[in-house]
C-alpha cells in the first residue's frame, strides 16, 4: 500500500509531462496515426516506469533495513563505530569449507593415530564402524582438496585474492613486530606494534595452513590411491607418506586447538568467539586496535576520494 501511495503523485506528474511532450511532437501528424502512436508510447513508458519503481523500492527497502540494523547496533555498542568489511563472501566460504573438512578429518583421523585412546572406539562406532569412518575421512579429504584448488584460483584470478596474497608474504617488519609484541607483553614498552591488514600471527596461520595442506594432501593422495602408488614406488615411499601424514596431522591439530583457538576464541578480547567468520565484518574499534595501519590507509583513501568528488563537483 505504502508503495502505491508514494508512487501515485510521482506517476501523475510524469504522465502529464509525457502527455504534453507527445502532444507537441505529434501535432503535425494526422490525428488517427497520432493517437495510435501516442497510445503505444504511453504503454511502453508506463511499463518502463513501473519496472524502475519496483526495482528502486526493493533496493530502498533493503537499504532502509540495513540502516535500521546499523542504528540499532550503534545504539547498543556505540564505542565500536562503523563496520568495515574485512573478509569478502568468497573468502568466508573458503574458510567454512576448510574448517568443516578439517573437523571431519580430525575426528575420523585421530582414532586411527591413537587406537588405544579410550574415546577412539566410541568415535569410530559413532560413524558405524571403521569402514564408514574411512569414507567420511575421504569426504573430508575431498573437501580440503577442493578448498586448496579454490583458494589457488582465488589467489590468481580475484583482485582481493591477489592483494591479500601480496600482503601475506612475510616481511622483515613481521620479525620486528613479533619482537616488539613480546616486549610489550613483558611490559618493556608501552607501545603496541602497529599491524597492517595482516599481523605476523595471521601470516603464520596462513602459511601453516599452506604447509599443512601440501603435506597432508600430498601424503594422503598416496595413501588414498595406494594400489596405484604401489605400481610406481617402493614400500618406503608409502611408509614415509604414512609417517608424515600421521605426524603432520598431530601438529596441525595441536596448532588449531591450542594456537588458533586461543587467538580467536579463548583470548579475552574475543571470548567466546566472534561471528567474523560468518559476516566478515570488523568494527572500527577493533580495526583501530588490531589493524591500525590498514585503518589509516582506508581513511586516507576515503579522504582522497571525497576530495576528488568535491573537485569534480
Amino acid at each position: 500500500m505504502r508503495v502505491d501511495e508514494k508512487r501515485e503523485p510521482l506517476q501523475e506528474i510524469i504522465e502529464k509531462e509525457i502527455e504534453a511532450a507527445l502532444a507537441e511532437e505529434t501535432a503535425h501528424l494526422d490525428p488517427e496515426k497520432a493517437a495510435e502512436l501516442r497510445e503505444k508510447i504511453r504503454r511502453r513508458v508506463r511499463e518502463e516506469m513501473e519496472r524502475e519503481i519496483r526495482l528502486r523500492t526493493a533496493a530502498e527497502r533493503r537499504e532502509e533495513e540495513r540502516r535500521r540494523r546499523e542504528e540499532r547496533r550503534r545504539e547498543k555498542r556505540h564505542e565500536e563505530g562503523e563496520m568495515f568489511q574485512r573478509f569478502n563472501r568468497n573468502f568466508r566460504f573458503q574458510h567454512i569449507v576448510m574448517f568443516t573438512s578439517v573437523i571431519l578429518l580430525i575426528i575420523t583421523g585421530m582414532p586411527i593415530k591413537f587406537p588405544n585412546f579410550i574415546l577412539s572406539r566410541f568415535v569410530v562406532a559413532m560413524w558405524g564402524g571403521i569402514g564408514n569412518s574411512t569414507i567420511v575421512h575421504r569426504i573430508g579429504a575431498g573437501m580440503l582438496i577442493y578448498f586448496m584448488v579454490h583458494h589457488l584460483f582465488y589467489t590468481i584470478l580475484s583482485r582481493d585474492g591477489r592483494r591479500d596474497f601480496m600482503l601475506l608474504i612475510p616481511m622483515p617488519k613481521d620479525v620486528r613486530d613479533a619482537a616488539r609484541n613480546i616486549r610489550y607483553f613483558l611490559g618493556r614498552t608501552t607501545e603496541k606494534p602497529r599491524f597492517g591488514r595482516f599481523s605476523y600471527i595471521e601470516k603464520f596461520d596462513y602459511w601453516a595452513v599452506y604447509w599443512g595442506c601440501v603435506i597432508m594432501i600430498g601424503s594422503g593422495a598416496l595413501l588414498w590411491g595406494e594400489s596405484i602408488a604401489l605400481k610406481f614406488f617402493p614400500k618406503f615411499v608409502l611408509d614415509i607418506a604414512h609417517e608424515a601424514h600421521s605426524d603432520e596431522a598431530l601438529l596441525a591439530t595441536l596448532a588449531i586447538v591450542i594456537w588458533h583457538f586461543y587467538n580467536v576464541h579463548f583470548n579475552p578480547d574475543r571470548f567466546p568467539g566472534t561471528l567474523m567468520w560468518w559476516h566478515g565484518q570488523i568494527s572500527e574499534h577493533e580495526m583501530k586496535d588490531h589493524h591500525p595501519l590498514e585503518y589509516e590507509e582506508i581513511m586516507a583513501k576515503r579522504a582522497k576520494q571525497e576530495a576528488a568528488e568535491v573537485i569534480n563537483r
Binding site: I182, F185, L186, E248, L251, I258
Partner: peptide
C-alpha cells in the same frame, strides 16, 4: 623431523600464548 618440528612449534606458540596472558 616431525617430532622436533612439532615440539619446537608448539613450544613457541604456547610460550607466545602465555606471554600474551601475562601481559594482559
Amino acid at each position: 623431523f616431525f617430532k622436533y618440528l612439532t615440539i619446537g612449534t608448539m613450544l613457541a606458540l604456547i610460550a607466545h600464548i602465555f606471554l600474551d596472558m601475562y601481559g594482559r
